[in-house]
Design a protein around this nucleic acid. Sequence first.
DNA 1: TCATTAAAGGAAA
DNA 2: TTTCCTTTAATGA
Length: 234
Amino acid sequence: MADSNPDSPYVTWDTKDFEKEIFLLLSVSSLRFYRQGEMIYLQGETSESFFFIKKGKVKTSILKEDGSEKILSIQEKNTFFGESAAFDRHPHFETAIALEESEINVIPVERAEAVIMEHPEVAFMVIRRIIRKLRLMGFQVEDFAFLDAQKRIVHILIKLVAEVGEPCAEGIMIQRGMTHEDLANMTGLSRVRVTTILNNLERAKVITKKRLAVTVINPEKLRSLLDGPDKQDG
DNA sequence: TCATTAAAGGAAA
DNA sequence: TTTCCTTTAATGA
């Protein structure tokens, strides 16, 4: 099973179980290049294509006019995005932006559907990838409904450790260029609040942190902070 | 309990 | 240097 952590908003994927299906889909795609910060599509737009990240990093989020943002996912290579608007022909509900210089396969949905008619197994792969995101959306809703600020941060750190954690001398490092503002936009908290909570966790010797990186030094204690009633952050 | 505002420190480009 | 990221405190919903 490729997905050991189906609930992280930071999405990576190992394609090894689906190389043939990916190849078939990409055979009808064209390649497009995006610069860092370049918008790929905007919420409200309609689309006849969906996308596959060949190289780079893409953020999908819902933007508001006042500049605030809810990040839905940050995705790395070998992942799909923009499927919903393509397959159901309704406008995008989210905006996609390249976070770094990226190479994106653009897949026209009509051609993808033709591929699926001929190779139905491609549909199963697509369904599984879409459910992966459905699941992560569900878990995000759960956190919004039930968790206080500290637990939201604790939970997202647990998920990020599982998805992109890198073992190091001190513990497990999360080093993906995410700012406190990014974490705030994922968890629905303010940037200042994220900083305060991370500082509290550092004081409690659960994590250490530096610019753009957090290292979990006590994963058991981190996990234990999800248990019990909501606590103050001191 | 948490958002907002403001003001400032520090690191990176 | 400028820009980006982080910190801290004060205020109030």
